[in-house]
């Protein structure tokens, strides 16, 4: 993709679809979390309607205070704070997943909307495309 294409961006044919990224994996044990984040950043160039949902172990992706110095992998948690600049502002976190892990909204690195399992299910129903990680 060239800079020019990135700049023009926009939806092909002007069609804006609703994309939901469903994040269910903890950040470092597998590559899913990082892959999801990269796809979100890349697709942000196409000016679609993007929402992110964090449920199950996915809520661990956005826990504050991650420090990967000793494990020698990149700490990509600060990148979630860049999403706002990419106009990705709809971040949803499942309440039940937080509770099962003893976490609260205050433990998270970005502002989110905490919603119930039922609301997550509704979110899935209301999107055109779901990308599952």
């Amino acid at each position: 993709m060239t800079d020019e294409m990135m700049e023009e961006g926009g939806a092909p044919g002007g069609v804006v679809k609703k994309f939901l990224y469903v994040n269910r994996k903890a950040p470092y044990g597998t590559i899913y979390a990082l892959e999801s984040l990269e796809v979100v950043l890349i697709s942000a160039a196409f000016e679609q309607d993007v929402s992110l949902a964090f449920l199950d172990d996915g809520v661990y992706q956005i826990v504050k205070g991650q420090d990967t110095k000793s494990v020698g992998v990149k700490n990509f948690s600060p990148t979630y704070r860049a999403l706002e600049g990419y106009d990705v502002e709809k971040l949803y976190v499942e309440k039940e997943s937080l509770e099962a892990r003893g976490l609260t909204e205050e433990d998270l690195i970005v502002p989110v909307q905490v919603i119930s399992t039922e609301e997550i299910a509704d979110l899935m129903e209301s999107h055109d495309v779901i990308l599952s990680f």
Binding site: D3, M6, E7, G9, L41, A44, A45, K74, N75, F76, P78, T79, R81, A82, G85, Y86
Partner: peptide
């Protein structure tokens, strides 16, 4: 340093 990524050009321009 802040976000651990290089911004896309659209994001850079805005910022």
């Amino acid at each position: 340093d802040e976000y651990q990524i290089a911004p896309a050009v659209r994001v850079l321009t805005k910022a």
